[in-house]
Design a protein around this nucleic acid. Sequence first.
DNA 1: TAGCCTATTGTTATCACATAACGGTTTTGG
DNA 2: CCAAAACCGTTATGTGATAACAATAGGCTA
Lengths: 161, 161
Amino acid sequence: MNDNPLAFVDHEHAGCIERGLADAEALCAARSLRLTDARRRVLEILLQEHRAIGAYEVLNRLSTSGENAHPPAAYRALDFLVAHGLAHKIERLNAFVACTRPREGHAPAFLICRDCRGVAETDVSFDMSPFDSAAEDVGFSVERTSIEVEGLCRSCQPATT
Amino acid sequence: MNDNPLAFVDHEHAGCIERGLADAEALCAARSLRLTDARRRVLEILLQEHRAIGAYEVLNRLSTSGENAHPPAAYRALDFLVAHGLAHKIERLNAFVACTRPREGHAPAFLICRDCRGVAETDVSFDMSPFDSAAEDVGFSVERTSIEVEGLCRSCQPATT
DNA sequence: TAGCCTATTGTTATCACATAACGGTTTTGG
DNA sequence: CCAAAACCGTTATGTGATAACAATAGGCTA
């Protein structure tokens, strides 16, 4: 595993955290949702890294930063964040990642490094009509689609030299 | 949950089981793989239904059909089947389904009913080039892509009448 | 501002999914 | 036949997720 497990491209990461929290505040205000302490702290933990983090790792970080936490505390906060698009669950890893662009109804696709668990949310939204028609053919009503691409990020690839 | 949790289209299901087993035999013979009793029985269990089945449910069915089984027995067989394309793991459900068309290197996409856990493997393979280029841009090397579409199959949708 | 309803959190216990580790047995090929 | 490799049995444990119920906090209306 590489020493640089953060995002796949260099950037000033502090901005991501600030922006993520600000976006969350704004989104919750706009929708009359309550961004409680627990939820805010869990979001902050996820925002620390562009990496998938398991619920129990979240739990540990909650504990070290003060009170002793229990599984439902973490899961409830995570469920809230996922339900409102502030975070995503990476099914392949049974882990969670903060959303890099919280907005209404986007259907994200993820690049997932199998080594460092780094996760990049892609902009790409391609033509799903083949699916929709395949689904329609059998009377299947689509609700959610998840696209997860597993591989190795640049930092985790064996050196080419 | 509906009474008809099988595939999303009617068909003579016995053929699926026979064909699945025959395909597996052929594929293993061709690649000098050993389709042992355990593996064969697990595949047979998966083939019973076009539905995602958890490892422990597989385990139970193994047990009822004779000897008492333990987790590694099921997982080892499942790992083998998945590794060689005879079955797929549905990440969203942490469960497994027999492959309906075992052939080399197909990248399947699944329609998954969230009610009856029915799973249909789609033929559709659409243009992934936007992804590939997005991945290339950040030096990410793609290894596997999983596309899981969650929704309701016709039988599990609320009646329209 | 008291009272009520609802959303949220605390707490305990338990369920569900998955693998580590090690020893024994079968299969295969030389 | 023997050695190596693949496979399987067994025990224990690690990891992810939720059920159920009690306690509390926030927001609304009379």
